[in-house]
């Protein structure tokens, strides 16, 4: 019976407000990438938080630094030799051209900001959250191993985020490939430099494993249904694992899920939680936990999981149902 009322709510007038709210969310999000690009290139900003922007710039810079350092190492330069700034600037400018890379770094910055504020407000741990602590002590060795790997990855992420940095090896494969391609283009065309840059790229490729990144380990961790359900409570799991679980359960990419958790996106957050199969009380509680001042549009409680998935445009197959 409850099934039926839920479905009716999804198609009835109740969800019109929700639909409108989501549309506004979509509009805000769809314009975010070009605006971000503009702001990273120009210093004046009002729309995007300076801290977030500074972090994006810092991370771009750090990516460029890591790559040039590898290159100089393979070229036999001393470890303490400073990186030529004009080269770094040129490389960073090239990196900032890529919308996908910018969007990813933007999502990371937003995640860090959310995580910091959430931890402060709820007096929770940033890294060793209750759920992670529990998983590390799991009697299933595989789960314990993954939890430990996630814990260290999250600790590294936090450390780098405080310094406005991001590890090259933490990028998704596509973005890492883009960065390495940019490095190859940025280095001059002499045969020696080309050989050195090739060696540097090879060393990055050899040491990279997407499955060992924070995102990879987290994703693998929430394959377990019980863990995923537990991780959908941000107070227990912490923002990082919460976002990973939310992305998996609602069929959107992790970066998109992060943006959906950001300020002003409460309707989308609610919808993602519905798509992840959370009930009305759980949705309200979770949204208010993250955004204490948020007001949820009516109809969110009535919408069924499948309609929520469809509204989000995520892949309805494979994630729906259990």
């Amino acid at each position: 019976m409850s099934e039926e009322t839920l479905t009716t709510g999804a198609n009835g007038t109740v969800s019109d407000e929700l639909r409108g709210a989501l549309q506004r969310c979509d509009q805000a999000l769809s314009s975010s990438a070009p605006v971000l690009r503009h702001l990273v290139a120009n210093s004046e900003s009002s729309l995007f938080h300076e801290e977030v922007l500074a972090r994006v710039r810092g991370m771009l810079d750090h990516l460029g630094t890591q790559m040039l350092r590898r290159y100089l190492d393979t070229a036999g330069h001393a470890n303490d030799e400073p990186i030529p700034l004009d080269r770094l600037d040129a490389l960073v400018t090239a990196l900032a051209e890529d919308q996908d890379l910018l969007s990813h770094l933007h999502a990371l910055s937003i995640e860090w900001r959310l995580a910091q504020r959430f931890a402060e407000r709820r007096s929770t741990e940033l890294v060793l959250t209750p759920l992670v602590k529990e998983l590390v002590g799991s009697d299933k060795p595989e789960t314990a191993r993954l939890a430990m790997a996630f814990l260290t990855a999250q600790a590294r992420f936090a450390q780098h985020a405080r310094r406005m940095q991001v590890e090259l090896g933490e990028l998704p494969g596509e973005l890492l490939n883009f960065c390495l391609t940019s490095l190859r283009k940025a280095v001059d065309r002499q045969a020696d430099s080309r050989r050195h840059v090739q060696l540097a790229i090879r060393s990055v490729q050899d040491s990279y494993d997407e499955g060992h990144t924070r995102h990879g380990v987290g994703n693998l961790l929430v394959y377990d249904d019980a863990t995923r359900d537990a991780a959908l409570d941000p107070e227990q799991a912490g923002i990082a694992l919460f976002v990973t679980a939310l992305a998996r359960a609602s069929g959107v990419s992790r970066d998109n899920a992060t943006l959906g958790v950001a300020e002003g996106q409460a309707p989308r957050l609610g919808l993602m939680l519905r798509a992840a199969g959370r009930d009305r009380q759980q949705v309200e509680r979770t949204v208010l936990l993250i955004h204490p001042d948020a007001r949820l549009p009516e109809g969110l409680g009535e919408i069924d999981q499948h309609s929520a998935l469809k509204l989000l445009g995520g892949n309805a197959r494979g994630v729906a149902g259990k």
């Binding site: 494969g173 596509e174 890492l176 490939n177 090879r202 490729q205 990279y208 494993d209 997407e210 499955g211 060992h212 990144t213 990879g216 994703n219 693998l220 998996r248 892949n315 197959r317 494979g318």
Partner: peptide, 17 residues
């Protein structure tokens, strides 16, 4: 294809039907 072209170890979720 990506893993081969990039020369990178890729790990992610696959969805199929």
């Amino acid at each position: 294809r990506k893993a081969r072209e990039y020369g990178l170890k890729i790990a992610r979720t696959m969805q199929a039907q």
